[in-house]
Write a protein that binds this DNA or RNA. Structure first.
Lengths: 329, 329
DNA sequence: CCCCTCTTTGTAATCGATTTCATGAAATCG
DNA sequence: CGATTTCATGAAATCGATTACAAAGAGGGG
């Protein structure tokens, strides 16, 4: 492969001048500029990115942490991130954590070794105190999931409001026994729970601890939890799920058992994924603009890189959620 | 940030010895080894990846071209690629082409500038003659979509067999008027069409050109094409779709219009995505092991890098497809 | 004790760009 | 017309690692 030195030799110029042409600097005469361009074409020259990265101390690479590539809500976020990244000349490295604390931390090594200019988290497995030390190495942005004590910019959705809206909707439909599928210890999960209980308490409804279910993320989880719910002696008449996939599986399972949705049991989704309006009955759900927060997060990231935004102190961009009423409630 | 020179100075050793310790080379005494490790920890040293990449002429980065991140079948492939990549110390750069010929070619620049060690295509927009010149710059692997004249390794699924199985199934169900949703000019689309017509011709069925529809990829496309089908005077009684999303939308649309599936119109999917078994009626479809071909493609890629496999001549790994019979046919 | 091999370490070149500084030529100004 | 900018270009340092080669010291055999 041809190097800049080859181009310099071929044109009889110095590598400095060739570099100036490549980077479109001023103070290069038109004839030399053309000479260099012709030589680059003639020799099949392409600047070596590793060399540039080393010298420029910048890689134009961003690591995006995502729990699972096969989760449509997270790929929607990724899509939003990608849109802004590509418009600004950044490439994305995908880091699938599979919800592993260890992997999450391991990926931060990319930042320490300067392989990426920064990191965007779309989910968080570890406590903030374990992640915080890494903020010294470059911008870290939280997108979607968050910790209340995080000392970095976060782009998030108003989970309290979202789950409050959904729960109130269920209550208005007459439900007083509502099962709740809980997430992790992240700020997102805490807030979602907060909104749920806010609506419950406002309505003066009593909540049983056996109606609360942990770790309900995947379709398998949904199936399992739904079975558990059916076996309860004092059975809930509505279910607040953590996501549309779980909700879809529950609707499916209900149908398989001859239970009518929402007549026998109402099911509320979360996300408003495409699947929500494809299944029968269509899912009532909370619309989460995943692509929007992804795009915002990438924008915030660029602001941090350019020093326009403080990268090591907390700042919050919060977007509202909205209830989409369909036929499952 | 500390550099290798800092560690050398701190320990009183040369950077060569430090480098040997970092890379676990033999012929370094145990005490120096420990000395260096302690110093690295003390100084908070991490090797700079750009510098290593430059020197080693290797980035451990692979570009993966994918039409849309929000398409579950492609993220399934990505998941398979990621599994093998991560097990072998490679990172993935996602390149969303959005089915644009120009973007596809633009991403190959990553290969020319040596930002990545190679490229895996999961879809192909351009003709092979336009891509071929780039094979000079590094391994290019085709995964899923392919061109028959490609001069690189390909990992693919037996599309002829898959569409043949599906079409024969429709014919066995008594259908003689079958609409066909066509793809592009890639080898995959050609073969899928080949399998379809093989079954049609074997059965001695007459095919009308107005039953053939182009560019049916997205849910919007599905809706549009379904409407067109309903308006035909000589209406097909079955539809061969290009994917489960399109099929799902069609099932939905049929329901909305009071048409019974499969009674009034049978609908055959492709891929066997999760959605296939969530909608009502469940989709009969062709199971495509996306993660499997992804994993194989990444394995093949590594073989090419290691010189175990010829990277600039055609080789084919083909996996079989299978029919999953459910309730939409 | 001498010669040879093996281990351990260092010096300096190298990977391929960018950029500072220096220099001479050309343009501008009063 | 002389002084001062501005323009165009090159030499060489630099980014931060890896590695070929050299050299010194340790150990072994005869």
């Amino acid at each position: 492969m041809a190097t800049i030195a080859d181009v310099a030799k071929y044109t009889g110029l110095s590598s400095a001048t060739v570099s100036r042409v490549i980077n479109n600097y001023p103070h290069v005469s038109e004839d030399k500029r053309k000479l260099v361009h012709d030589a680059m074409k003639e020799l099949g020259y392409f600047p070596n990115t590793s060399a540039r990265n080393l010298r420029n101390r910048k890689t134009n690479l961003v690591a995006v942490l995502i729990p699972r590539l096969t989760n449509p809500f997270f790929t929607l976020i990724l899509d939003g991130i990608e849109r802004v990244a590509e418009a600004n000349g950044f490439q994305l490295i995908i880091c699938q954590t599979k919800s592993s604390k260890k992997k999450e931390i391991d990926f931060l090594n990319l930042l320490q070794t300067k392989q990426v200019d920064g990191v965007i988290f779309t989910s968080i497995e570890n406590e903030w105190e374990l992640i915080q030390p890494y903020t010294a190495y470059g911008p870290i942005i939280l997108c979607n999931e968050y910790h209340h004590d995080a000392t970095v910019p976060m782009v998030r959705l108003d989970q309290v409001q979202g789950s409050y809206l959904g729960t109130r909707h269920l209550i208005e439909k007459g439900h007083t026994k509502i099962a709740y599928c809980m997430g992790s210890t992240s700020g997102l999960s805490i807030d979602r729970r907060r909104g749920f209980f806010k609506a419950i308490e406002e309505a003066g409804i009593e909540m049983k601890s056996e109606w609360i279910f942990r770790d309900t993320y995947t379709m398998e989880d949904g199936k399992r939890v739904f079975q558990q719910i059916l076996q309860l002696s004092d059975r809930p008449t509505a279910i607040f799920t953590g996501g549309d996939e779980v909700a879809s599986v529950m609707v499916k399972e209900a149908g398989r058992r001859g239970l009518h949705v929402p007549g026998d049991i109402a099911i509320l989704g979360f996300d408003d994924q495409p699947i929500a309006s494809l299944i029968e009955p269509e899912l009532t759900t909370i619309y989460q603009p995943g692509d929007e927060i992804g795009a915002r997060a990438m924008t915030v990231f660029i602001e941090c890189l350019n020093g326009i935004r403080e990268r090591m102190s907390q700042s919050v961009i919060e977007l509202p959620l909205s209830l989409v009423i369909r036929d499952s409630t």
